[in-house]
């Protein structure tokens, strides 16, 4: 539906600047996702005990999970640096993915409530941030010379491919996430459209809808995991000695 006849609440030419447009729905959802992650994060880490209980256990499991992802890509002495980034990325992307699975909210003909990650601009921003950070840490941890040498290793003629790789990495990282979540939302809204056609449509849509929501939850988790995993892969390409 959102791809069919619903519109995005676009706010154009903000502050009189010609190129500065906002999709207010995205802004809202980014805010909601950030808020949820922040509240969960803070709530989980109040009243921490040496003997973990309940929610603290879950957060510690999450930390171990991200630690595992990082550990499979680089040694822990360097990887420790990226733990907060990995955690935040994972939590934010997962929550953002889930927001669109739970429900899509339409006010009038305007789509307000959806996954912020179902927008290519947002996922590409995250991807760009990750790749830029990987370059930053590459220079910071290994020095400019080693960083530059990384582009001509193992053979100098690979230089153009290496440069193209950086852009393709960014694109694939961002668009993979966007594509998965966007596709999920389209299918969900199609099913909602079917459900609203009448009683028969409702019955027909209910079962696939439940199934698809379950699948979308799975996809949301997997995509968050893949995003963090690839982040760490790109990081390790830049910061590890043996690459």
């Amino acid at each position: 539906m959102n791809s069919l006849n619903h519109e995005a609440p676009i706010y154009e030419d903000a502050f009189g600047i010609g190129w500065l447009d906002f999709n207010l729905s995205n802004v809202l959802m980014m805010f909601v996702a950030s808020l949820i992650v922040f509240i969960l994060g803070v709530a989980a880490t109040r009243n921490m005990k040496r003997y973990p209980k309940g929610f603290q256990n879950f957060m510690e499991w999450l930390i171990d999970f991200i630690k595992g992802i990082i550990g499979s890509n680089m040694d822990w002495r360097t990887g420790r640096l990226f733990l907060p980034l990995g955690l935040t990325l994972f939590a934010y992307i997962f929550v953002a993915n889930m927001l669109g699975v739970v429900t899509n909210g339409v006010v009038g003909h305007t789509l307000w409530w959806k996954s912020p990650t179902a927008d290519p601009g947002i996922t590409l921003t995250l991807a760009t941030l990750v790749v830029v950070l990987s370059h930053y840490y590459g220079v910071k941890l290994r020095g400019g010379k080693e960083y530059a040498k990384g582009f001509v290793r193992p053979l100098p003629f690979l230089l153009p491919f290496k440069i193209i790789e950086e852009f393709s990495n960014t694109l694939t990282l961002g668009l993979r996430l966007y594509g998965n979540i966007y596709a999920g939302e389209i299918l969900l809204s199609l099913l909602v459209g079917l459900a609203t056609t009448g009683f028969g449509g409702f019955i027909g849509a209910a079962v696939p809808m439940v199934a698809w929501m379950g699948f979308s939850t799975f996809i949301g988790f997997i995509q968050a995991f893949i995003f963090v995993m690839l982040t760490m892969v790109y990081m390790s390409h830049k910061v590890s000695e043996d690459h």
Binding site: L20, F22, N26, M30, V37, L87, T88, L126
Partner: peptide, 26 residues
Amino acid sequence: GLLIGDMIVQLVFFLGLLALLGKFAW
């Protein structure tokens, strides 16, 4: 499409979230 505003907001939100969570949660 790729709205510059969204991108900036995303960047700011994410970096803010990173900083806040780093300080208060992680």
